[in-house]
Simulated scan of single mutants.
Amino acid sequence: MELSQIKAFLDSPNPQNRMKAIVELRNHTPSVVVPLLKQRMYDKEFVIRSFVAMGLGYKRTNEGFQSLLDLIENDGDPNVKAEAANSLANYGEKATPHLVELFRSEPHWLVRQSIFAVFYEIGSPDLLLQLSKWGLQGEDLVVKLAAISCLGKLRKTPYEPEAVDLLFELSTAETVAIRVQVARVLGSFEDDKAKAILAELRQDTDHRVVGATLEGMI
């Protein structure tokens, strides 16, 4: 698609045309793409704004970085914020403090899951520990389960003892799903305390928890 047609489609009242235009921008340089993407940053359709956020992650410029910061600060839709967080991660270390602050201030599970995924992939144990603590303090079960999973990434790091202590506290949680997740994560630890907690969980009253303790032995 020619650039002139892309520009026309970006101004189309039809959201399908606007979306198609954004996709077509993949064939152009960042210096061309970013100013055009910014034109649709406040589109009334959250899907379009999500596509804009995605594009700003692929076509990286300083201007695009600032635009992503604007999206995570001002957009009210968690889908857009989550996509912006994913794209922001593509900018490397300079994005880290912004992602950490977004996780701290935004309790929505979709946004927090996106940020968990970023740091889980990077493998930053200190940040994973902090994010896990914040996630465990919230009320969302999906986030809590992800936080427990991230604690498993701290095995064989200087933060392993603190991770085991947190898992110990969670091993008696009333919610079965939490105890199941704790059992699964503990299966990868070789720490004596972790093994003792796992042995206790093998006596759990719920068969799902007991089954989870055996998964690592199969």
Rank of each mutant, 00 (worst) to 15 (best):
M1D: 12
S4H: 10
L10M: 13
D11V: 06
N14M: 07
V23K: 15
V23G: 02
P30G: 09
V33Y: 09
L37H: 06
Q39A: 06
Q39M: 12
R40M: 11
R40Y: 02
M41V: 05
D43L: 01
E45C: 05
F46W: 12
F46L: 02
F46R: 13
I48V: 15
I48G: 06
F51R: 12
Y58D: 13
R60D: 03
T61H: 10
D70K: 11
G76Q: 03
A84G: 05
S87V: 10
L102Y: 00
W109H: 11
R112A: 08
S114W: 00
A117D: 15
V118G: 07
F119V: 07
F119N: 04
E121Q: 14
S124D: 15
L127S: 01
L129R: 04
L129M: 14
L136F: 08
L141C: 05
L141R: 11
V143A: 11
L145C: 05
C150R: 00
L154M: 11
K156Y: 10
P158S: 04
A163F: 00
V164F: 06
L166A: 04
L170T: 08
V180T: 12
Q181L: 02
Q181W: 02
L186S: 09
L186C: 09
A194D: 05
L198W: 04
L201Q: 04
D204K: 07
H207F: 09
V209M: 06
V209N: 07
V210L: 12
T213S: 04
T213P: 11
L214G: 03
L214K: 12
